[in-house]
Amino acid sequence: MGKLSDKFFLRLLVDMLATFVMVRLVYYRFYKKTELFLTFFGFNMVIFLISYLLNRVDMTMGAAFGLFAVFSMLRFRTEGINTKDMTYLFLVIAMGLVTAVSKGSWDELGVINLIIIVTTVLLDGNILTKKEVFHQIDYDNLENIKPENREYLLEDLKLRTGISVHRVDIISIDMLRDSARIHAFYYA
């Protein structure tokens, strides 16, 4: 069995630094959640190691991407995960794959990972677009959910919640309880 080269450790360092920046400095900053840290780092590391080791044998980029797809789908078959978390998981898996199988030097890999990170910050932060979020609310004034009273509804929601709601989606109406389930959208 041959020993691991300096190339392996440089790529591993680039991958771990890029993953740390993506998970700890980007994902955590936006969402303040730590429960998926093990998943993000674990999947990234496993994909990196398997892809790097399989890349030492004759393997095409298509086969590596297929392996990446199989591993990324395993997680989603066992538990529900929201779209944002799934996107970050996909990104850290992709970073591990690219870092492991690319023929570029360590500095080129750093730039590629930096492009992924910067693009993520621009798209997920409030830099290029406003981040719209919603709260699900059980609303008790059915008169205000009529289309002609939409402004009254928005003003009532702002008064009651303190949130500057700019639009609502009516999810369901319960005529027996005189309430409606709505999604109140606002910019974070």
Rank of each mutant, 00 (worst) to 15 (best):
H135I: 08
I47G: 02
L97K: 07
I117E: 04
I117Q: 08
E132N: 12
T99K: 02
F43C: 14
S179H: 15
M73V: 06
D85L: 08
V118S: 04
N126Q: 12
V98L: 05
L157E: 07
F185V: 03
Y139F: 03
L12S: 05
L153S: 00
I112D: 06
R181K: 11
E148K: 12
T60P: 02
A180T: 02
A184Q: 08
M1F: 10
E108N: 11
N144P: 06
I112Y: 05
G104K: 07
M45S: 15
R56Y: 08
N141L: 03
L36A: 04
F37D: 09
T39C: 02
D6P: 14
I81V: 15
F41D: 03
F8P: 03
R181Q: 09
V118D: 02
D138E: 11
G80W: 10
Y28P: 04
F65L: 13
V101F: 00
K32N: 14
S5I: 08
M175R: 14
V133I: 13
W106P: 06
N44E: 01
V92N: 02
R160Y: 15
D178W: 06
T99L: 01
R11L: 00
F9T: 07
R150T: 15
S105F: 03
I173F: 04
V14P: 06
G42D: 06
Y139T: 00
W106L: 08
H183K: 13
L67R: 13
I137W: 03
L157A: 02
M45A: 15
I137Q: 06
D85E: 15
G42V: 01
N113W: 00
F185K: 01
K131G: 06
G2N: 13
F20D: 01
M86F: 10
K7D: 15
V168Y: 05
R150A: 12
V133S: 11
V92A: 00
L36S: 04
I47E: 00
L176M: 14
G125T: 09
I145M: 01
F76V: 07
K32G: 07
K33L: 11
T120A: 11
K3S: 10
G42Y: 01
Y31V: 01
L38W: 15
E143L: 12
M95V: 05
I112T: 08
W106M: 10
L89T: 03
E155C: 02
I81Q: 06
I127E: 09
K3R: 11
D169T: 03
L122Q: 05
S164I: 15
I81S: 07
Y186S: 03
V98Q: 04
L25V: 05
Y27T: 02
A184W: 04
S102W: 08
N149I: 06
Y28A: 07
L154T: 04
R150H: 12
V101H: 02
F37M: 06
K7F: 15
S172D: 01
T119W: 09
L142M: 05
E151M: 15
D178S: 14
V70L: 07
F65V: 04
F43Q: 08
E151N: 13
T78N: 15
I145P: 02
G62P: 00
L176F: 13
S72V: 08
S5E: 11
R75A: 11
F40D: 01
I112L: 01
L142Y: 00
L10T: 14
L53C: 10
L17Q: 07
A64S: 06
S102Y: 09
L53A: 13
L97M: 03
A69T: 12
M16F: 15
